[in-house]
Design a binder for these strands. Sequence first.
RNA 1: GGGCCAUUAGCUCAGUUGGUUAGAGCGCAGUCCUGAUAAGACUGAGGUCUCUGGUUCGAGUCCAGAAUGGCCCA
Length: 1019
Amino acid sequence: MFHPVSSKVNFPQVEESILSLWKKHNVFERSVNARGSGSRFVFYEGPPTANGSPGIHHVLARVFKDVIPRYRVMKGYYTPRIAGWDTHGLPVELEVERELGFSSKADIEEYGIDRFNARCRQSVFGYLKQWEAMTERIGFWVDLKHPYITMDNRYIETVWWAIKQMWDRGLIYQGYKVTPHCPRCGTSLSSHEVALGYQDNVEDPSIYVKFKVVKGLPSLPDKPTYLLAWTTTPWTLPGNTALAVAPDAEYVVVAGDDEYLILASALFKQAKLEGCEIVERMKGSDLATITGVNYEPLYNPHKYGVERSRFETVNETGVLGARRLKLQKPNEKLTYKVIATDFVSMEEGTGIVHVAPAYGEVDYQAGQDNDLDFVHPVDLQGIMTGNYPFSGRFVKDADPLILDDLKSRGLLFRSEKIRHTYPFCWRCEAPLLYYAKQTWYIRTTAVKEALVAGNDEINWYPEHIKYGRFGDWLQNNVDWAFSRERYWGTPLPVWQCEACGSYDCVGGVDELKGKAGLSGLKEPLDLHRPFVDELTFTCSQCGAKMKRVPEVIDCWFDSGAMPIAQWHYPFENDTLLGDGRFPADYICEAVDQTRGWFYSLHAISTLLFNRPCFRNVICLGHILDAKGEKMSKARGNVVEPMAVIDKHGADAVRWYCLTASPPGNVRRFSERLVSEVTRRFLLMLWNVYSFFVTYANIDHFVPGSGGALEESELDRWIISELNQLIADVDGALEAYNPMEAGRKIESFVNELSNWYVRRSRRRFWKSESDADKLSAYNTLYQCLVTLSKLLAPFTPFLAEELYQNLVGSAFPEAPDSVHLTDFPVADVTKVDKQLAADTRLVMKISSLGRAARSQAGIKVRQPLAHVLVSLASNQEQEILERLKPQILEELNVKDVIIRPPTVDISVSVPAVVIVTEGDYSVAVPTELSPELRAEGLAREIVHRLQTMRRSSGFDIADRIVTYYQGEAYIKQVMEDFADYIKQETLSRELVDGVPHEGVFTESHRLGDYEVLLGVKRLE
RNA sequence: GGGCCAUUAGCUCAGUUGGUUAGAGCGCAGUCCUGAUAAGACUGAGGUCUCUGGUUCGAGUCCAGAAUGGCCCA
């Protein structure tokens, strides 16, 4: 006996009991360990940060992360899955700062780095319970008991080892580079972080500034001459040390009332100067070389208490290419020059570009190439230094004051506003400022070819990411600025000598402990700041004291090192690279990780081992709300995932995530869509399951009984479809395409429910337990059991429920969970393509026939003498001839008359309704004989009695006595069709007469006749 | 400014290499079926396949350009 299954189901409730079953029987661990001898399938978990509650996009990712490994386990692969937590980085610090009400790094230092980091350590798992609960509830199987945690000493030690490997190969250097700097967080942002914070339509000043040429042009000495330049960042003007022109472009000198202005002729009109007279033309290269076209600084740094320096190159081991700035002496008569470069745009501005080497990447490069001065009157908080009229102000606030100042000095030609895209800090939304700063870099450009070549070996889903977004990113690779001037992160393991300035990189704890003259060591060891800052040792070069540099590293480096750091390689597990645990077969994250984790994984792996560390990656699109808008707290449209799961169940959410749309597309999410999935798919499957169990129990069906099966055509058909389905699902999952696999399952369940079960109903109902009935049971049983296995990776709860009841209760020796079974193997010999096509033909004709009946207004319950059918080919005629019985049943007709394709059936018989689709036509006669009418009435009576049985709460198998009272015609029909009516309604007898008390009665109108019907249950 | 993706019914999505009249589910209106009943079947309304050009005997599909949205880069 199977456990009775009601057609009414509460999925969340079923799932809860499955969860406790898994827990009780330790199913996840066993599913992994049972495959211990199989080949490894390696999954890498991209570690989330647990300092915020998980969102629906996390659920999406975890569902996709789960489905493939579950499939692999069932295919016999040994597939351990290790959870991971990302614990370092600015997000964590910002959260703690918010809690403490801090607004700057000074607040943190005052509070104490030790206390601050202790709070970070605590904060980072603030939502761990929620994360674990969500992970468990949705059935994402991953080892949460032994996760890798990026802040653990052992994890950090591996990260140090990795950095040391790169250091030894000269791949780490400290350089000045212009980096996007967040003035509030006080740190540089990596380019992948910058990418997170662009905002459109930002309003900024758009100003034209006049730079006075020192002596005027030799040919035009009568009036002062100005170079006209354009900028949107007035605050960078004090840092101006050159003006750049395009060497091949034409420049013009135009005459104003009491001045000459120089600008590119191409931008002459755009600067609204077309009314002015052009007095001279010259090439940009001439402008740059003409003696005397030096200009006066807008702000001579020496007058405002600001330093001026120039670059010089130094070479040291490990710090290749480092540059130092050499301080210059004050010069009251300072002038700057015009340079010719290749970056001057003729699209906007004046063709003369303001160059401030401290504040732009190209500016900085131009400064190096042209020995320009370097002036940097802005501190790390974005405050103007020196004693300008606008000193002490935040740069953006200084802008209007600078304009006022220039205007009062007659140097502002024009001032407007512009709307453009500008980057902001992705966490705190402060505008980013481009600064030349000393930062530690990883020279990823040195392995660019290997990065690109490695990408060739990776399978991307969707494929366009490979040579699109990710490939482009690799092609445009720049060195990785990976140091952060922050507190809560993996400390950069570089020590510098206080005296001689030489560096040492430490690659492990033992190495550190072995350093001569080590002091400051405390146990238990904590590799974080400030404790690691207190560790000093003796300089091997000069014997003075080595102190750690202050920086920590980008947390993307942490997570990107997880392939080795989760194993504490090479300090433990040193066979990792050769024993199958590296690289990953599968990873999966959202598309924003292209420049995040996907990149840091790939970069670190390539730098260390010169090979990629993942083979297949599913890259998920982002989730939008029901209206297609981005979910955000501000909009208040964030979907709380647990609420949806509690209401509809995890399987519904999983199935929606997996099948609703291609994984790489953006997708809309709403509770409504999840509930649709439940109705359309889960409930339909459940109904088939419930139907099966109900009748199997009535008939005491025992799975596998009955020896060789006498399969009907219908059985052979669904078994053929089933085996085709197995092959399709297997192939799609093998190809990392759960959506396709899921949709195939959906259409199979639809066929199973709406054709196989519907067509087979009478076989289950009939009283005698013959071979045909047994075959039907065995066939449906096989379909359901196979479905439970096919569905196990997708909807593990529902799959388990089916399996437990269908298999667990019948085969005590079977594995005690569907997740411990093998994935079904398709028996291709059972796939009958011809039969599939034949059945499609029957479906087609039935559908047309129903349409014709519908149009003729004749219920299917009313038998008809025949239908006329016209087909596409003679071959199909033969097929349909064979499958006639099915059509007879489906359409409730006594005969099917098949006409050759060449005969127009509309003229062959009068009084018909015809429905045609393509080459297929079905015609039904509208005339009814008295015999057919009587039979129709009998069926109508049966129908009414069935409904009465149900509404009076009888069980399906209850025997009854039926009473009837009506006119002569009714009595005649009741007598003529007595056997039929008794059989259909399980009536022991049909009693003509007034029902006595205790009988459920109803009066019915059947066409022109009145009848009183009564039913009474027999004990 | 550049790149990638998307745009098909009111909504969510299919549409293989170009080939009759562009499909499904949901929703809506109606009919039917029902011993799966909080399902199911059928019919109907609902489409300038975002737009403009081009290639072709033939374009939702291929090419070019544009628009809108999303993501990314600068």
